[in-house]
Computed example of a mutant assay.
Amino acid sequence: MIRPVPIADDAVLRLLDAGDAAALAAAYVRNREHLTPWEPVRDDAFFTEEGQAADLDAQLASAVAGASLPLALEERSTGRIIGRFTISGIIRGPFQSAHVGYWVDGASNGRGLATSAVREVLRISRDELGLHRVQAVTLPHNAASQRVLERNGFERIGFAPRYLQIAGRWQDHDLFQAILHD
């Protein structure tokens, strides 16, 4: 079981649960403009409590199946969700690998929260999930996210043209990996 972990004086990284739909919807509404350049196009239903409840159901089912681990960055003093960190695409066997994706509330950027949370995600990936490798991708112009990855030992391993449909168009991505066991 993954326990909540302090990330900063007033932030904790914890597992998402079925009761988080309203808080997630509020976080996505608050950050809609902030996240638009970095995420797929979302329909209006995504930003509702019902939309988030449906997404959470899928995320939690994936977690039960061992394919992902959905985490929230929560501000302890307010209980607000101020970020999402997801370990997804977990592959077992000889690969023992997964992807990590994340975002932090626009009002909380610049506080080192993403760097600290990704560090904890790597620890969970290695110590709790037994993974050997974690991959992340960024848009080439997302320098802030690349700094977070580099501060956590990720290495750039490649370039993928037209890799993901972000902000309504197929966009190139830089590929990064962190090896968790020598």
Rank of each mutant, 00 (worst) to 15 (best):
L122V: 00
A8D: 14
R119H: 15
T138E: 09
N31G: 01
A23N: 12
Q146G: 02
D10K: 07
S108V: 01
D105W: 02
A117W: 00
L60V: 05
E155F: 11
L113S: 10
T86D: 15
V121N: 06
L131S: 01
A67L: 15
R32W: 09
D9A: 11
L164P: 01
E39P: 15
G83A: 12
D127S: 06
Q177C: 07
V29Y: 04
W38R: 00
V148G: 09
G101I: 03
R162W: 08
D17F: 07
S88M: 08
R84P: 00
A53Y: 06
A114V: 14
P4Y: 10
V134G: 05
E74L: 08
P161V: 03
F95I: 02
L122G: 11
R32K: 13
A27M: 06
Q146D: 01
R111E: 09
N31H: 08
A136R: 02
A144Q: 06
E33I: 08
Q171Y: 09
D10A: 10
I7G: 02
L175Q: 11
L69G: 07
L56H: 04
I157K: 14
Q96P: 04
Y102A: 04
D105H: 03
R162S: 15
A26G: 03
L71E: 12
L35T: 08
F159K: 07
Y28I: 04
F176T: 00
I166T: 08
A61N: 04
V64G: 04
A178S: 10
A18Y: 05
A178P: 03
L175P: 01
N31K: 06
S97H: 12
P4V: 01
S68E: 10
